[in-house]
C-alpha cells in the first residue's frame, strides 16, 4: 500500500464532484446560522459527529471488505430524506467513475454494475480506498476530512470568509477528526461479528430538514 494514494483520494482536486456541494452550509448561511469562523466551526463539528461519523463507518467497512450492497442498503436506512439520498448516489456515481479510472478493480466493477445509478458515496469511496490498497482507517480519514472541508470551502465563497480563517477552523477540528475516525473504524471492525447494525447511525435533524428545504430552492450556488 502507498500512503500517497490517500493524498490522491482525499485531494479536493480529485475529480469526484465534491466541490459543487456545501454539505448543508449554504442553507445554514441563508438561515443566519453560519456567520463567521466560530459558527462555521460549530457547524462543522456538528456535521462531523453525525453525518461524518455515519459516512466514515460505511467507508471503513467497505474498505475492510464488507459487502458493499449491504452497506448501500444501510446507508439508505441512515438517510431518511430523499434529497440527501439523491446527492449521495450522484456523488457516488462520480466517485465511481474517477475511482475506476484511477484504481481499477473487479470489486469496483461489480458495484458499478449492481448500482448503475450510483451507490452511496462513502461506500464507493471505501471500495476505492480498498482498490488503492489503503486501510479502513485511511478511508475514514478521507471521509471525515471531506465532511468538514466541504462546508469550510463553501463558506469562503458564500460569506467571503478569509480562507486563512477557514483553514484554521479545519486545523482546530483535527482532534475531533481523529476521534471520529477511531470510533468509525472500531465500529466497522464489529460488523463481521455483529452485522451492519454495529455501524454508527447518528443523525442531525436540522441537516435532514434543511437539505430538503435547500433542494427546493429555485436558485442556489451549491447542489447541496
Amino acid at each position: 500500500m502507498s500512503r500517497a494514494a490517500l493524498l490522491v483520494l482525499a485531494d479536493g482536486r480529485f475529480p469526484a464532484g465534491g466541490h459543487a456541494h456545501s454539505g448543508g452550509a449554504e442553507a445554514a448561511v441563508a438561515a443566519g446560522r453560519i456567520t463567521d469562523a466560530a459558527t462555521l466551526e460549530a457547524f462543522c463539528r456538528g456535521r462531523l459527529h453525525t453525518a461524518g461519523l455515519v459516512a466514515a463507518g460505511l467507508a471503513a467497512a467497505a474498505a475492510g471488505g464488507c459487502d458493499p450492497l449491504a452497506l448501500d442498503d444501510a446507508a439508505d436506512a441512515r438517510t431518511p430524506v430523499p434529497a440527501l439520498r439523491t446527492v449521495a448516489r450522484k456523488l457516488g456515481r462520480q466517485m465511481m467513475r474517477a475511482a475506476r479510472a484511477t484504481w481499477p478493480s473487479p470489486e469496483l466493477d461489480a458495484l458499478a454494475a449492481a448500482r448503475p445509478k450510483g451507490a452511496h458515496q462513502p461506500v464507493v469511496l471505501g471500495l476505492a480506498a480498498r482498490s488503492a490498497g489503503l486501510a479502513p482507517e485511511d478511508a475514514a480519514y478521507a471521509v471525515v476530512y471531506e465532511t468538514v472541508s466541504g462546508p469550510a470551502t463553501a463558506v469562503v465563497r458564500l460569506l467571503s470568509l478569509d480562507p486563512f480563517d477557514a483553514t484554521a477552523v479545519l486545523a482546530r477540528l483535527a482532534s475531533d477528526l481523529d476521534g471520529v475516525v477511531a470510533e468509525a473504524v472500531a465500529a466497522a471492525e464489529h460488523v463481521p461479528r455483529e452485522g451492519i447494525g454495529a455501524l454508527p447511525a447518528r443523525s442531525a435533524p436540522l441537516l435532514d430538514i434543511t437539505a430538503q428545504q435547500h433542494a427546493a430552492w429555485p436558485v442556489r450556488l451549491f447542489a447541496s
Partner: peptide, 19 residues
Amino acid sequence: LDQETAYGPGVPGWDTAAV
C-alpha cells in the same frame, strides 16, 4: 430506518447549527 440521536453533556457537536 436506522437512526440514532444523541444530545446533552459530553456529546460532541450536539448543540450546533448542524444538529
